[in-house]
Amino acid sequence: MTARIGVVTFPGTLDDRDTQRAVRVAGAEAVPLWHRDKDLKQVDAVVLPGGFSYGDYLRAGAISRFSPLMETVIEQAKGGMPVLGICNGFQVLTETHLLPGAMLRNNHLHFVCRDQKLRVETDNTAWTSDYTAGQEISVPLKNIDGRYVADERTLDMLEAEGRVAFRYLDLNPNGSLRDIAGISNAAGNVVGLMPHPEHAVEPLVGTGRTDGLGFFTSILKNLLKGAHA
């Protein structure tokens, strides 16, 4: 038996297939989930992939956040179910307020698409335990609404509680405050980041490295450990 990891498709989602593939490469079962269903099909964890759900109308992630499926995801996430939001998925998670802060247009107003160096700041989440804190990885980054903002108090709290999960290295690609590329909730089950680990799981494509695979092996190990505990 392996873990079942749900991958949500909204209208306008782009990276659901790549994310399903990354889940399978790590050895878990990928379960497609549809935004209009309420049922999570008994998955053990959920990934909200990248793209432009609902055309980014109103604000990126703002309409997806009210989809029937997200109502269930929010409820389950509050109960401890692991949730990973990548890019647009991160935007959805900030709109749900499961993660603090918000995402805004890149400070230079251009779409960014590049291989991005990151530092994994914490191995103390459900999605990063296979990394070591301080480890440097390189994964693709592609967004236009990637500027992470929050008020100073929230930023200080995130730093103090070790909830800045990833930081941009060498270059801040979008004007995110304190070079923040991703954060977690207090419990560590909900993680969001702008860069795309699911595009860096096989040496043949993407960066030519497999630096993103750790997200998916981390969650698989944690779920199987939980099942046997």
């Binding site: 805004l104 890149n106 400070n107 107003l109």
Partner: peptide
């Protein structure tokens, strides 16, 4: 946008 939030579109 709140006054303290950078608005690069407005600046452009």
């Amino acid at each position: 946008l709140k006054p303290e939030i950078l608005d690069p579109q407005g600046q452009a």
